[in-house]
Every structure is written in C-alpha cells, then in structure tokens.
Nucleic acid binder design. Sequence first.
DNA 1: GTCTATAACGTGATAGAC
DNA 2: GTCTATCACGTTATAGAC
Lengths: 194, 194
Amino acid sequence: MMDRKPQILDVASELLQTRSFTSFSYQDLSDRLGISKASVHHHFASKEDLLLALTARYRAGQRKKLAELDAQSESPVERLDAYLAWMTELASGGHKICPLGTLQAEFNVIPEAVRADILELFDYAKRWLSGVLTDGLDRGEMEFEGSPTERAVFILSAVQGALQIARAAGPKEFTAVTSQIKLALKPRTEKVSS
Amino acid sequence: MMDRKPQILDVASELLQTRSFTSFSYQDLSDRLGISKASVHHHFASKEDLLLALTARYRAGQRKKLAELDAQSESPVERLDAYLAWMTELASGGHKICPLGTLQAEFNVIPEAVRADILELFDYAKRWLSGVLTDGLDRGEMEFEGSPTERAVFILSAVQGALQIARAAGPKEFTAVTSQIKLALKPRTEKVSS
DNA sequence: GTCTATAACGTGATAGAC
DNA sequence: GTCTATCACGTTATAGAC
C-alpha cells in the first residue's frame, strides 16, 4: 500500500501517547502495521528520524487547528472552549495523554535534536492562548489577575497535568480541571441587562 | 557499607525523576553506587520490587511532610505557600520533576502492582489540599468558585504540568504558575482597615 | 518497498563462589 | 553482602535478496 509514512506516524503517535518514546519499539510498529521491522526502518532509518517527523507533524497540526479555532469564532471564551474540547478529543476519551506531556516527561532521554521542536510546540501554544486571554480581557468576557502570558502558562500546565492524572484516576478529574479553568476566568462584575 | 537499601532508593529516585522508570537500568544504579548489578538485585530482586519500595517511601514522605506543614502554621495561605515551596525544592531547581508525574506519564507501562500506590499518592494530596482550601474559604483568606476538591485537582494538575514544562523551558515558567495559583485565590473584596 | 537474516549491544534476572 | 559469569531476550540498526 502507498503512503506508508503517514500510516507509520499514526501508529507511532498512538504508541507515544499511550506508552512513551522509550517504551515503544520498531517491533511494536511492525506488529501493528503487519510489515517487517526492516520495512519500518526503510521509511524512518532511526528512531530519532521517526520522532522528528512526528514532532514536525504535531507542529503542523497545531498551527492548522489553532488557526481553525480562530476562524470559527471571534469570542475568546468560545475559542478557549474549543481548545479544551480539542485536548479532550486528543486524549481520545482518556487513554492517551498530550504528546507534549509525554515528550517533556522524557525530556532528558529523547534525542537532543527534537528538544527544539518540543520548545516550539509549547511556545506556540503559549503565544496563542496568551492572545486569546488578552482578547478576553479587552472584550470584558474574561477577568483575571496577572499577565495573560502567565495565565496562559498556568492553564497549559493544568491541562497537561490533568490529562496525565485523568488517565490514572479517571476522566472526572479532567472535567474538574476544565471546569475550574473556565470558572476562574469568569468576570465577577455582574452586567446589568442590556 | 550498611543500609544499602536506602542508598539504592536514593539513586533510583533521582533517576526516576530525571529520566523515567523505563529509562533507567540496574546498570545505571550499579555504576553510580559502585557495586555490581547482582548486588543491587540482592536488595531488590526485581525492578517491580524496587519501584514498590520507592512508592512506599514517597507515600511515607508525603504523609510526614504534609503533617509538618499543618503543624507549622494554621494559616491556609501559608500552608499552600509551604507546599509550593516543597514542590520547588523537590524538583531541585529544575532538573527533576514530580515523582507522581513521571509515573503517571508511564502509567500504562509500569508494573500493575504500583498503580494503586500512584492513585493513593494523588488522592492523599488531593484530600490534603482540598482541606487547606476549605479552611481558606472559611477563614476568608481565600476566595474561589467551584468546590475545594475541584480547585485542589486544578492546582495539583498545574503544579505537575508546570514542573515538566519548566524542566524543558526554564524555571521562569514554574514561578509563573505558582504566582498564578496564589493570585487566583486572593479575595477580591477589600478589607476595611481593622 | 518489502522481505529474511543477522549483527552488536543493553536489558532484567539468576547461579554459585567468596 | 558482594562478586564474576552467564542466560535468555529485546533493542536499534544494517546487509542484501526479491
């Protein structure tokens, strides 16, 4: 079959998110794809190559998805909601965690070349979310203390941690966190009707 | 030398927090302790035994530490501060992450027997922090929406995620999160002097 | 692009001497 | 309690045929 590369990346991505980079092997890929280990190596010579292709795809996916969210709604609250929904979906109901999370958990172990990609993945999300929060502040849809950048890091940390906690302790923990993220941004000044 | 067991656990703990459970080996322990692999096996027959001893020690340390924090101050704000300081210290300035975090990141890979310990570790922290937040609410030192339990999970998620993010992106990200955690709990109603 | 076969090495774990 | 030696196996990766 054609286009083996994306197929391999699909399986590799699932293994990365359910296990970890060190904890999956070419043998695992071989088994699940029904082709030999050598064939996998033909497409991605080394595990480092494979991971680099994976992070490149994550970065492209992230750019595309966040641009879509921006296009679908101008409302900061709705864009944040959509982002949180994306994270839930990405975790596939609780068996996977965030790719960024699993890679950062093994930061000292993974090939050096991918570390820059990991930082960019985080930085891009931080800038995007910071922008959403700034908009929310300007429009009066949100209210919080401290800078939007700090709040963005706060939220990203919580989401990353919550996905890991939820996989171990159940999905209820994740919804608790998304609920709290939204509650903590709600303006306390009540609006008089129109 | 006597008391090898705790020495081994010390090194194992450091390797767990800097690398990951799958990513350190008996060889690593052997090298750093200056004794043979077989000697390490003498104290902990299997890697599962080793990890169980480690999580048991984490649980004991957690109980002791949190009891100390409760004893040192009655103020919820101060107890939370002390908890956050403990987490910073535990990360040793940024090269380690939270033990719970690294174990949850590899939840599907680690021996089944330790999963109960991981859940208890999280649950105990959740109950403790939830109690601190309830106190804070009662005393008027804190103010937040939603239940104390939900807020506790929110904060624990953020701390766990922030330690991982900070190791990759620098300590500034962690202080941003601790700062935000505190800011988001500050009462907005201004007190009239005395 | 896929395969079989194999190399070179690291892994967790055990046997048995001291 | 520590050691040397070894086992059985899984790992990443390569060679070369089809």
